[in-house]
Design a protein around this nucleic acid. Sequence first.
DNA 1: TAAATATATGAACAAATGTTCATTATTAAG
DNA 2: CTTAATAATGAACATTTGTTCATATATTTA
Lengths: 217, 217
Amino acid sequence: MNDESVTSLPTKGSKTKEKILKTSLKLFAVKGYKATTVRDIAAAMGVKQSALYNHFKNKDEILETLIGNLTSSAIVTLFEDKDPQEIQIQGKALLASIATTFKLLSFDGQNEALYKLLMQEIFRNERIREIYNEHFYQENVKKLSGVFFGMMQNELIKSSDPLLLANEFFSPLFFYQMQVSLLKLDKKSTSSVVSMFEKHVDFFWENIKIDKQESLF
Amino acid sequence: MNDESVTSLPTKGSKTKEKILKTSLKLFAVKGYKATTVRDIAAAMGVKQSALYNHFKNKDEILETLIGNLTSSAIVTLFEDKDPQEIQIQGKALLASIATTFKLLSFDGQNEALYKLLMQEIFRNERIREIYNEHFYQENVKKLSGVFFGMMQNELIKSSDPLLLANEFFSPLFFYQMQVSLLKLDKKSTSSVVSMFEKHVDFFWENIKIDKQESLF
DNA sequence: TAAATATATGAACAAATGTTCATTATTAAG
DNA sequence: CTTAATAATGAACATTTGTTCATATATTTA
């Protein structure tokens, strides 16, 4: 009827689907998938709920699409852009760079939302669990193991189980990332946790590096 | 005090209330709070949904009661039964005992359910976040810090920041606990993760202990 | 025992929710 | 411009869900 809607945006159709995903992700991250209604999503993007069904079969398909996008998200491709050759010779600096990547992801809005969605649904959604386990955990731990193996060969660190090192290096980063997310939810200061990312690297490196003075066996 | 109600065996009513809580917890842990209906709970305990309202004002009150019970649950009172004097002199054995406690909690049905509920709702429920942070995280990290401080004074471990040590010791345990939960959901083997609890203690202790002499081998 | 209290039932309600669909408006193509 | 395709709307729908309440049943108390 009487139309107060703005004039059409450029390339309306193709961008609507993107907007649905983006809006849904934001809401799912805050309220959870089940508690977010189709009306919530539509309202948040200034549209009627029935409009969404021109782009997605149903609500489930929105979630499934988001989950599918997980594999190409930054939280899963931590090592993607790192040169394997370079990786094996950088020692502590490489670990510091990985820790920093983790830290920065906690403060990127898009990734934070993805992270929250993942954490909230991982206990209910088998597919999310699969992606988390295979693409996030296994993949990164495997690559980290390779990193540590290389460092051992280059005699940068003591010889031990690379897989253990990978887990021990990885798990505090994961934990601190979660702490940051939780603190931010209550708008509390994250500074004490943020400093833990660096402290972890220092502490960890002290444990694994080859001490020049005492390496005499 | 005035005479309280006559000390009688658990009445039918209080038993039912317990059963509601127990059943609800189980369902909340599996499906999440929002996705669990009052009818689900009633059906699971072989009763009609309206019966629940004789014991709880509404569905929210069930969750709130469960959350309230969190503070007295085992996942929060890790150190409760440990003698402070003894704590400071046991060194690695104490750390091993803490790690074992963590591990065992992952395999206790009741605590596993509480853990899952906590993890699923912590991003949505401020009260759960508060309890997690104050009673679970802060409390345990504080106590752990005390443990490490004592060990430093007894010259069992090197001198460093006790709070950092507490976080570094705690976070992998937390992570491995979550891994166990996730693996069990898919009925996958947990053995590789279970062994990480001990390996973590070994690895960590190597990093903090005071080396009597390096060339003892 | 009878009276009083606590608990369970069956039925119903209103609100919320996911979804459909005919119609209208908008965009793209010939 | 005309036409075909695409997208948005308004209205409705069937279910699901939390909750209430009068009534029936069981349990406790006197």
